[in-house]
Amino acid sequence: MYRITVENGAKRFGPRKVFADINFDLKTGESLAIVGRNGAGKSTLLLCLLRQYLLTKGTLKYFENEKELENDSLKGRIGFVSPYLNFYTQLSAEENIRFIATVKGVNVTGKEIDSLLSKVGLEGRGADLVAEYSSGMYQRLKYAVAIMDNPPFLFLDEPTSNLDSDGKGIVTQIVEEHRAKSIIVIATNEQEEYSLAEKQCRVGQ
């Protein structure tokens, strides 16, 4: 059982307040949509949750079976999909997956890579360089990487951007599959995306 808690979370860049008074407590099986207008700080909050930015005020804690997880233990346990997450475009999709799996400490076989790619609708395209992918295919690859080892935390920023209706269906399917075993956080201002989550946290009111 995993848990994330944020208490009185606030972030400033110099004099500019991005968000303040963010509070939530999520356990495995729960999902949260971070909503707000453009520029409200949804992606910044996600980056704070990923510990890429420090909160200016407040606390952020991760737990596994009520034992707090340190930064190092958290690495490799987060699946992340975002417009600003980039892969190596001069490597193929398979090479990217293999490399990230090794860095994560995950054993991945060729069959498993095929199965992952097939799950996101990229069957037969694993050997292609990512540079040759369309934006929608690139987004699908991000899902293949994010879910490769069923992470306990799944963070999705604008989850269906660049995707066609089939791709959106795949995202819904992935969210439903991971709903029971992960904590899912979705940053969006699209209704069809935030309706995938049970709870809401509004930023930039």
């Binding site: 190596y88 490597l91 090479e95 490399f99 090794t102 400490g105 995950v106």
Partner: peptide, 27 residues
């Protein structure tokens, strides 16, 4: 997919191999 016991050496080698591959493709 199983968690491996990838240590410092295998992870470092993966980063090295990736950079060599990228360098060969871009020079």
């Amino acid at each position: 997919m199983q968690k491996s016991n990838a240590g410092l050496v295998s992870r470092s080698f993966a980063v090295l191999a990736k950079d060599i591959r990228l360098e060969f493709r871009s020079r």
